[in-house]
Nucleic acid binder design. Sequence first.
RNA 1: CGGAGCAUGGCGCAGUCUGGCUAGCGCACCUGCUUUGGGAGCAGGGGGUCGCAGGUUCAAAUCCUGCUGCUCCGACCA
Length: 407
Amino acid sequence: MKASQFYIPMRKNVDNSLIKSHQFLLRAGMIHAIGAGLYAWLPLGWRILRKIENVIAKYHDKLFSRTCMPIMHPEKLWIESGRRNSYGKETLCAVDRHEKVLIYGPSAEEVVVDCVRNYVQSAKHLPITLYNIQWKFRDEVRPRFGIMRCREFLMCDGYSFHISKEKSQKFYYQVLETYLEMFQAINLNVIPIHQNDTGEIGGDLSHEFFVRAQTGEDEIEFDEKWLADKNLTEILNMKNHDKKQQSRAIEIGHIFCLNTVYSKPMKLKATLSDNTQQNVYMGCYGVGVSRLLGAMIEIFAEQNKIVWPKGIEPFQIAVVNASYDSKNVCEKCEKIYGMLLQKYESDVYYDDRKLSISEKKVQLSLMGVPKLIIIGDKELQNEKFTYIDNSTKLRMEITDSELFNLI
RNA sequence: CGGAGCAUGGCGCAGUCUGGCUAGCGCACCUGCUUUGGGAGCAGGGGGUCGCAGGUUCAAAUCCUGCUGCUCCGACCA
């Protein structure tokens, strides 16, 4: 991607009463506020969001198969599950031309149940595990903190269907374990906390996943053992009296064992080998994808730069033209850019704009591009490149061949 | 939903209390020159009628009423 073709409206002035991540998102040109709790994802923000989505999808693919559920749900399904009455004013509705009420989905239990209930007749058809990553809408009383509590947001939601409570719970713990791996893979020191109150979703076993951050909306207590050595047994053995530390925290995920809370009213049953019928045991598993992006900024961003977790960087490497008036330099940059494209594909950024080298470097730090190859008159004369690793601050002069060994 | 605040060029703000010169500042933008290695400098220049509607007044960004939008605190919250 060439910088000259990339819409990235960076701002130097932002309202400093906004939360850190919100300010950063605006400064780096990642989002644009459209209305209360509504944001447009601009090219840079969208790229990063997609990177996060990809990691989350990769881990969910180990346990679920991916689907895409509709955003709008017929009210009928919600009446059937009983959530129409209980969910409250956060439900945004629309009326179609036939005067039917449609609900902009805040989660997808009803539609997923509808997808499987006509097929599932026997225990032999189970288990079924599905997930989707889709835009959700909750008409928050008070949207705030930028993308952390907005109305429209991207969420990954998984659903499991098993024939028995035991199997359902076993799967639940598999998901729990996979989530721990997943969050670790993106450098997040996540703390799972067992919840007793499962809220509107229902069910009886639930864990919330938190990351510590000063700007978090929640106050949590956790066992400090979590920070050193974490494994599944540790969680299961955790008792209230073990809790030793407190911190502000951001909730980035929540999982539930739902039992038959949905399958009962929605008549999702399977026949057992003794020819009796059994309500199917469900679980649901949610990760806030867009909120995760905000949480990463809260955690990893400094004043003028961010170091994204590995794999989340908007671009892995950038070619920086330091002498845009020089034809030779421009040609060299194009050539190196072309070669890097072969290896990094769309993950290479070429800053070909007519801006000073200083400004380009500052902007690339703000974007969180980890590796820079700087090419200017100086480099051309010395027949070397300047290589800068933004995350480690390593800086060196390298030759053509060294460049290709390095990257 | 309760409380508070804000709305002035593209962005961030001052001016409002105590009505009155041509509505100001920083950033951004345009032109020129000099620059170009962690958000360049100098000089010149363009752009706003002050959220919307009404009212008071000789005169309203400024005072009054209503409306709309947004932000912050709280309650709420998969």
